[in-house]
Amino acid sequence: MVRILLAVFLMALVSYLPRVLPLAFLRQKVDSPFFQSFLYYVPYAVLGAMTFPAILYATGDIGSALVGFGVALLLAFYEKGLITVALFAAFAVYLFQYFLG
């Protein structure tokens, strides 16, 4: 048990350090346009990389995941809210799996 708690502590430490070091100690703004552009694009790139292709494996079968993916894309395109998009995508997956799975 002590070993497990130690592992949890170490995991917490290496989860926190990359988050806190730049935020706490890099006070000055970055001037380079290259680096500024790089950082500006980070959130979009992270979200894209996290979503696809992981979304295809999020529901247990690719068919229902594609349906949920399509519903989410469509609703997001019409700029519906985050909760609306999330719940309708889940509902579409559920219906697909219920009737066709």
Binding site: S64, F69, V71, L73, L82, V85, A89, V93
Partner: peptide, 15 residues
């Protein structure tokens, strides 16, 4: 399983 898609659907709604 159906709820597994919610997080990704949210990402899509953001980007």
């Amino acid at each position: 399983k159906a709820l597994g898609i919610t997080l990704y659907a949210m990402f899509i709604a953001i980007v």
